[in-house]
Amino acid sequence: MTHQSPSQKGRSQSGSNRSLWITLGLAVLLGMSSFLYEPHGYFEVEHIKGFYALFGFVALCVLFIAAKVASPLLTRHEDYYAPKDTLSEEFPENQLGRENKDV
């Protein structure tokens, strides 16, 4: 819909790369810290080093795969329930305070 200049796209790309690197660094630090303290948990599994890290990572992968598999079955076009649904209609303009920034 909107045209994106290459520089904009490049900037968001680099920003995204930066956040990836920061997160990666944090992840490594946190992963290492598993070895620095004696965990106390309720279950055996919690004593596995880096259990939570692994769990978080795998959980999201599983979630994405499940969503990928399920979404063709469980999604339809926006107008599927029209007109008895709000998703297919615009939000009434008179209830909005749609104002743009003064440029």
Binding site: L24, L30, A53, L54, G56, F57
Partner: peptide, 9 residues
């Protein structure tokens, strides 16, 4: 760990 690894993923 949980949060950061989800973000990482």
């Amino acid at each position: 760990q949980l949060v950061v690894f989800v973000v990482l993923a």
